[in-house]
Simulated scan of single mutants.
Amino acid sequence: MVKFAYTIFYVQDVVKTIEFYERAFGFRRTFIADTAEFGQLDTGSTALSFSSIDLITGEITDGFIKSDISKKPLGMEVAFSTENVEQAYQAALDAGATKVAAPSVKPWGQTVGYLRDINGFLIELCTPITD
């Protein structure tokens, strides 16, 4: 059986990124390598991880598209659910996130808002989906 272990974002500064996610969302770091090339946050059942661009460049020799806050976001996102999207959205902005789309109620009843982190990755904040 295969298990979803974690998602890794490749960033310029692992420690600075982890500090942003701690301030913005209250996550707790579980690991930062002595070299500061890799780190993880406790985000629930699946960890959110960060690795330095320099570290992965040696592994992916043909290169990859780096996230860049000055360009359009990559065609993917990480989503965090919360009962109070507006409060979490403001906390993320206060921590340095960039506004994409303010929270709004969708036709199916879910509240959803979009931000970008300090590296340009797209973040969705949403209320849990209910049956």
Rank of each mutant, 00 (worst) to 15 (best):
E124Y: 06
A47F: 06
F80K: 01
I118A: 04
I32P: 13
L48F: 13
F121K: 00
I65K: 08
A88F: 02
F9V: 01
T57I: 15
F64A: 02
F27L: 06
E19C: 01
F121N: 05
M1S: 09
S81F: 14
D54A: 15
D42F: 15
A33W: 12
T7Y: 05
G96Q: 15
D131G: 10
E77N: 03
L93P: 00
A91I: 00
E124Q: 14
Q40L: 10
K66P: 12
D54Y: 10
R116C: 07
G63T: 05
D131Y: 14
F38Y: 14
T43S: 10
T17V: 11
L48P: 03
Q110D: 04
R23K: 10
L115V: 11
I53V: 13
F27E: 02
C126E: 04
A5Q: 10
V112Q: 06
F20M: 03
I18W: 14
K66D: 11
D54F: 12
D131H: 06
L122T: 02
S52D: 13
S51T: 06
E59G: 02
K72W: 06
L55E: 15
A101P: 00
I60N: 07
F121G: 01
S70M: 12
Q110V: 13
F64S: 03
F20Y: 09
V100C: 02
N84E: 09
V78D: 01
V78Q: 02
L74E: 03
V14E: 15
L48Y: 04
I53A: 11
F4Q: 00
W108T: 01
F9E: 01
P128D: 10
A79G: 08
V11E: 08
V11H: 11
F80Y: 03
L93H: 01
A47R: 11
F9D: 00
I32G: 11
E19W: 00
E124N: 10
I18P: 10
F64K: 04
A91W: 00
P107V: 03
S70K: 05
R28E: 07
A79Q: 06
G120P: 01
E124K: 05
A97M: 06
Y6I: 13
I65T: 12
L55A: 09
